[in-house]
Design a binder for these strands. Structure first.
Lengths: 206, 206, 206, 206
DNA sequence: TATGAATGAGCGTTCATTCAT
DNA sequence: CATGAATGAACGCTCATTCAT
């Protein structure tokens, strides 16, 4: 009388599958324009099944945001914790890693999604700002402070500078989901990031 | 011997008033979540009045985008045409002007709006990409090319570099409409732009 | 200081012009599907002008019905009053006259219109039934009674027989406005009426 | 061990129930003046349920027409196929049957409905003319030809004669739904049909 | 657990009616 | 008299949510 492993596995995986389907469609069409029917269909379940895992459409949206990026940022913090080389190297690594883990994956849609829906979900927006955005900025800020303290960078206000660092990669991720199909001129994201880091590091030279 | 009937003035001004009200609400809530009732109420007219000027909600949305930024970009092009000083000065002036005319005004919501709704309006997205975004990039690109040709900047690929220039200010405008109320740490936008230009110009020094 | 004759003439003619425009459109599209804008446009006046002559759409509809056929039926009654020849000849003349004056003109749409809208306008339907339909039946009935009294026709119940007489021509008028464009097989209405009268009179031979 | 779920039975029966409710109201008030709320209420379902079976109000209307009379006309054709007695007997039987199956039932409203709405639904009007009206005429026409070929009737043009046969019964059905409540003088429909057939057959005697 | 038929509140849109000109 | 801009009640249609199976 074993439990059925196949079903059990599906049952455990369901929430993540549902969130993945929801994220895809929310990012593509926006929250309001996405029908639960479509999310259910994309996840390969019936419409009612959604309600076994999430109490409402809004609840599903919140879960998409909450479960999305937080784990990755913990990894980012560890990267800074254990780093021993130059701040410049770390900065470059962090941006490339962010792109590989977020910008180039479906998670890259989350910033676009939050930008679009912030006005309608104050509670989850506060969560996103505090637990994701600010946290990311703090990671970058730590690296900048490290470099400035070590004489590697000239002194600039940390928080605005951290925004300068993140802006190009965040906006590239956002554009990727918004204008990619109409914008035929983009080269390799890695090259773009390197150009950005090169220029920024020169700009920060003491 | 009246100068002109009150109505005529209203009739001429109405479309712009309606677009302004629509832009405010579209930016705040997103296209789908904005009710025409609310747009009409904010514009101080009845719901049916909207349909005297725009054939549908979609039509109104398109007008908001189409009539919004194009005139300003023509002005930007003229700024480059007539400029005589250094490319660095021009670049700084363009960004500050963009912020004053777009980022700090209601028009600053248009990038956020297009980011959010691009998936649902391919036609107007194409327009926005071609007539607004690409045009803005071309303006910046001309300045960068100017500086590189004049030995003021080191040689870098123009198009990605133009993106780097615009990213922080565009994203600041987007954030202003999305996360401002939750993000208590931002300083003066002008300072932020100056920090960006300073760093970027140093980074581009030959 | 004469009154302006042109205007005065227009002013007097307006109600009839408006009713004519309304009849055309009511017959073509039905009452509910006809917009007052269209009626006004067809009559060549502004939308508000309609309300100078008729208090509401419903009022206009009632006028269309009330002013439409009544005068013609008075003429029909006189035809019977003054007739001296055989009942058969009179019957044939009445049907041909009805077709010429009603069936073949715009007035032929009134039966279709009343059939369609009777459920929504009980008051005007009662008027139509009593002042138009029943009156027409009474005219035909008088002719039949004349023929039966004179030994020209065999005795049959007058009222149902009168309906039999009118049915083909009324239905032809109705079809003309409903199915004409899809029904390519109809010959000359006059031949149809003659066939009807011939057959009916034979059928009524003593 | 249930035979079948209650829902399945309902699901199969629903379309016919909805069409029946729609026919009643369309006939009573006309297409435009009938609200979907009322149709749903009469069918005992919620408003949204309609859209599970018909894509739009127009679609429902078309189904009402398409599914309404066609099966009956197939039966009519079989009656002619298998008949062996006189054409006169067959003609009388066909009219009485038509009245019993169509004129006296809710289906009798369909001719009224098509008359009223033909202008707004060209496509379904074409269907009705070709698959219902013309087909009915052809059935009657076959009987007339039969009688003429057998020497039972004198020779007359078949198509107009078929219209003469149908006009009184069709118009009686139409009137039943339009003027019944205001027209207090009608006797037994069967008597009316008999009078019609008697007269018409005498009129067609060789 | 999973389903999808059923629901009805909500919104985009239309159009008869009003009224300032 | 005549106009047409403005209005808002009304209706077709959608879709998040429920619940019997």
């Amino acid at each position: 009388m074993r439990a059925e492993p196949r079903w059990a596995r599906r049952k455990d995986a369901r929430p993540a599958e549902l969130r993945a389907a929801a994220l895809d469609l929310f990012v593509e069409r926006g929250y309001a324009a996405t029908r639960l029917d479509d999310i259910a269909a994309r996840a390969g379940v019936g419409k009612g099944t959604l309600y076994l895992y999430y109490a409402s459409k809004e609840d599903l949206f919140k879960a998409v945001i909450r479960e999305g990026l937080v784990p990755l940022y913990e990894e980012g913090e560890r990267m800074v914790d254990v780093h021993t080389g130059s701040a410049a190297t770390l900065l470059r690594a962090l941006l490339h890693t962010w792109w590989a883990r977020v910008g180039a994956t479906a998670l890259g849609g989350i910033p676009k999604l939050m930008i679009a829906e912030s006005g309608n979900f104050p509670e989850v927006t506060r969560f996103y700002v505090e637990e994701v955005m600010s946290r990311g900025m703090r990671i970058i800020g730590r690296v900048l402070a490290l470099g400035m303290d070590g004489g590697e960078f000239r002194r600039v206000p940390v928080e605005p500078a951290a925004r300068l660092v993140m802006s190009p990669v965040v906006l590239m991720a956002v554009w990727r989901y918004s204008f990619q199909c109409f914008d035929h001129g983009d080269g390799d994201p890695a090259d773009y990031i390197d150009l950005h880091v090169d220029t920024f590091l020169r700009g920060l030279a003491p």
